[in-house]
Design a protein around this nucleic acid. Structure first.
Length: 362
DNA sequence: CTGATTTGACCTAC
DNA sequence: GTAGGTCAAATCAG
């Protein structure tokens, strides 16, 4: 049972990573395909392992846990689930994401005494861990342990760097960051850039990241994330949509850790009472894949939107909100094109259909 | 005018 | 003492 949950989390995580790095994948079509395959494989494996009833129960649990913990913000148990899932799938460092969106490390406090000892603390700094921030009360003074603390909750990823345009553009990951420093690092050819969450002041959001090019690969960033976002504001949010700051100590885990709501995979993935009548997320993601699900196969030429604005037919796709995903798969796997412009096709397709959908509403 | 970036100085773990 | 991380004033951009 635990393995199934891990597989679901793993699939969601892969999909989330892929989503976050879409802007950087224009020239990585093969990698993109491998990533899609891996996502499908993860979910397919779950489906194989479970009877229909049990599957839905697990999916609910998995998605709820994923949403509760926040996509891309691994807790220890989540990391373990992901590792278990990778083991089940027979992946190690050779997985698709190991080549591009490689999660190369997740370090936690691991029993080290990071808070105590003879470290000096300063009262004028905010804590760096979300849990600390959540427990903040006005006037509380905080001890500060800089370097040793930084080893905790560190997640290191490698992501493709842009090859055209602004080469220094940091990889897009769904959040807005403010650069607060840059430094030459000993033994590194390229400087390291330091970013913190744009909403750090408003929300005391402790999230930070460091971006550095690899010595031997100019076109790959190594991104180190520290601290989880508690602001829950995606990069695409307008100022009008940004909610007021949540008072310390009152933030719920669910609210605080949800992934950015702007992303196609992050939205509307929630169990509903109609779950029996709706396809699983597997069907939604994989309906174009022959042999991966028992649902709609590759022969189906209808996509989600074509099923009539969300009316659930007996066998057709039934997730109107997944229109972008459907088109995504449509372009990637049915276009038969081997051109390098696939990504443009995808995004233009998505944009057009969103526009169409919006136009229909009005 | 406001918010983001740059960059030299400062702080702290090792 | 050194290196990594952060601060904050100056500067830039929208």
């Amino acid at each position: 049972m635990e393995e199934n949950r891990g597989l679901i989390l793993y699939g969601c995580k892969l999909a989330k990573d892929l989503e976050e790095n879409l802007p950087n994948l224009a020239n990585h079509r093969d990698f993109f395909l491998r990533s899609c395959d891996e996502i499908i494989m993860a979910f397919s494996r779950v489906k194989e392992r479970l009877s229909h009833e049990v599957f839905h129960r697990q999916l609910d649990i998995g998605i709820q846990e994923w949403l509760r913990s926040g996509a891309g913000t691994s807790t220890d148990s989540q990391a373990m689930n992901l590792l278990n899932a990778q083991a089940i799938l027979g992946h190690s460092s050779s997985s698709a994401f190991s080549h591009g969106l490689e999660l190369i490390g997740h370090e936690t406090a691991g029993g080290r005494d990071l808070e105590g000892g003879a470290d000096r603390w300063r009262g004028d700094r905010v804590p760096e861990k979300p849990t600390d921030a959540l427990n903040l009360s006005p006037g509380t003074s905080f001890k500060r342990c800089r370097r040793r603390k930084d080893e905790a909750d560190k997640i290191v990823r490698r992501v493709p760097a842009p090859r055209m345009g602004n080469l220094d553009l940091p990889p897009e990951d769904g959040f807005t960051w403010r650069k607060y420093g840059q430094k030459e690092i000993l033994g590194c050819k390229h400087p390291r850039s330091y970013y913190r969450c744009t909403h750090q002041k408003l929300y005391q959001c402790p999230a930070k990241k460091q971006v550095q090019r690899l010595n031997d690969d100019f076109y790959t960033f190594e991104v180190t994330y520290r601290g989880n976002h508690i602001c829950n504001i995606p990069s695409t949010a307008t100022s009008a949509t940004i909610p007021p700051p949540i008072e310390h100590g009152t933030v719920s885990q669910t609210t605080a850790m949800q992934p950015p709501v702007s992303h196609w995979l992050s939205i509307e993935v929630k169990p509903s009472p109609q779950v029996e009548a709706t396809p699983s997320i597997l069907d939604t993601l994989a309906f174009r894949y022959p042999g991966t699900t028992g649902g709609a196969g590759p022969s189906s030429s209808s996509n989600i939107a074509a099923s009539g604005g969300g009316s659930a037919g007996p066998s057709g796709p039934r997730f109107p909100d997944y229109q972008p995903v459907a088109d995504f798969a449509d372009v990637m796997f049915n276009s038969g094109s081997s051109s390098n412009n696939s990504m443009e096709l995808i995004f233009s397709s998505i944009d057009e259909n969103w526009d169409n959908a919006r136009a229909k509403k009005h």
